[in-house]
């Protein structure tokens, strides 16, 4: 019998087999926008990590005589702020807090939200209703207001603003995880796994997780940009870190008063927030299309 069916094989031109991730990588490598965004983000992240060694000057050192110098002033390539501190150094150092406040809440929310969403989506029924209706309550408030309200209640500070942002991001991630899980659960391969006698836990581990985490991860990457902006917003309102810590949102706030004196310098923290968040956004779009196997 083997001989009689084998002829079906002959002309099937063997394609060099590649794994899922290597084919994702191959697609990514052809996508110049995403690569550019990755490079920019890498530069920002590395300079934040190595800030003490990279920054040309002390970000806290003030000077009354050289306040609000223009961009391009010798010794201060990006000028100085309203207290005469070196902008370049402050921006490099500011990246540390801004990125921590942007990324940590999303990671926390990714863990908690995926867990809730997968449980809700896979188990369904009453549990789904309890989880999803609770999430809906949080959804009813605009995310900015919610973040401000929670931060306000908890008090200012780095940890508190991370906690409040985490709470803000759990509902959207739970929703995405739940809807992806629900659609995966109804696919034939999960039915087939059930038909081979597998239990719920095994099915989640082998068949659901891998298919749900990808899209949820991509969605969460997109949230990082929102998170950076919200974190900056909290600092701007005085609910995040306190002066004189360098943080992009806070810098934007304190430089606000000097906007008429030297608008270019005052806009720099905003430019950093903009570049970082748009890079995260475009990168998540790129990841999404690269991870779409069917396309």
């Amino acid at each position: 019998m083997a001989e009689t069916t084998l002829p079906g094989l002959v002309p099937d031109v063997p394609i060099a087999s590649r794994g899922y991730w290597s084919s994702v990588f191959r697609r990514l490598s052809g996508d110049w926008t995403t690569i550019l965004c990755l490079v920019v983000l890498l530069i920002i992240i590395l300079s934040a990590v190595f800030a003490p060694w990279i920054a040309p000057a002390d970000p806290y050192k003030t000077s009354v005589i050289r306040r609000l110098k223009d961009i391009g002033t010798p010794g201060f390539p990006l000028g100085t702020d309203e207290l005469g501190r070196d902008m370049l150094s402050r921006l490099i150092h500011g990246g540390r807090l801004s990125l921590v406040m942007g990324i940590t809440p999303v990671i926390n929310a990714l863990i908690i939200g995926s867990f809730l969403g997968i449980v809700a989506g896979f188990v369904g029924g009453k549990i789904n209703m309890v989880i999803m209706r609770t999430v809906d309550v949080f959804y009813a408030f605009p995310s900015v207001l919610l973040a401000i309200a929670i931060s306000g209640a908890l008090g200012a500070g780095l940890v508190n603003s991370i906690v409040s942002l985490t709470i803000v991001f759990i509902p959207p991630i739970t929703r995405v995880a739940e809807s992806v899980t629900t659609s995966v659960r109804n696919l034939d391969f999960v039915e087939a796994a059930r038909a081979s006698g597998a239990g719920g836990f095994t099915i989640i581990r082998v068949h659901v997780l891998g298919n749900v985490l990808g899209p949820v991860f991509v969605f969460a990457t997109g949230l990082i940009s929102v998170s950076i902006i919200l974190a900056s917003g909290l600092s701007f309102l005085g609910l995040g870190v306190r002066p004189p810590e360098p943080e992009w949102g806070l810098m934007l706030n304190t430089l606000r008063q000097s906007i008429y004196v030297n608008p270019w310098v005052c806009a720099l923290p905003g430019v950093m927030i903009f570049i970082t968040s748009i890079c995260f956004n475009l990168m998540s779009d790129g990841l999404r299309s690269a991870m779409d196997v069917r396309a």
């Binding site: 034939d188 391969f189 087939a192 038909a195 081979s196 082998v206 068949h207």
Partner: peptide
Amino acid sequence: MQMVFQDSYASLNPRLT
């Protein structure tokens, strides 16, 4: 007792070899 489904693509987990 086992079953083979119509949609050959949907009935295989895309993430598994």
